[in-house]
Amino acid sequence: MARLSPAELRERLERDLPGAVVETTPLQISPPPAHGPPPGPYSTDDTLVAPDLLVEAACYLRDQLGYAFLSDLAVVDFLHAGLFELMYRFYHVDGGPALVLKLRVPRADPRVPSLTPRWPGANFHEREALDLFGIIFDGHPYPKRIYMWDEFEGWPMRKDFPRQGDKYIGEDE
């Protein structure tokens, strides 16, 4: 099965959906250590898309290229670089490797258009990202926390969330 490589996907998207593909820049995950050589920058071969055109790009993958199966959505918190990276994986029903779309949003204002109205399978993925990272999905039909209770404050998977202490236990007593 001949499937698209990331470079081919970028070409197709640039041709058919101008403005969707964003230049990837390597980023530093952590501040340089006091001793020893600093770790290399994090760079990716995958296609980085503009958040505004995510829905169009995803629908292009499904309707034009046949990648109908949205398998996964993962959020990575790059605290040092001040942004969130979202990774969407799409598969073709006939098989083959995935096409990956990534997008980066600033940590200060993490707003992403929701895929759920067009792609019901994104529902729980997006609610999980909302619950644990505080990503706001514009247009999600039921934007509620999925694991934590509704009154919970804070986003537990963010890197700056306190890992010790009992801030949330017995607060109202």
Partner: peptide
């Protein structure tokens, strides 16, 4: 599926 991001240390930076 498992998605891992490494920051070059002995612990995964992201584990999904």
């Amino acid at each position: 599926g498992f998605y891992l991001v490494s920051d070059g240390s002995t612990r995964p930076y992201r584990y999904k």
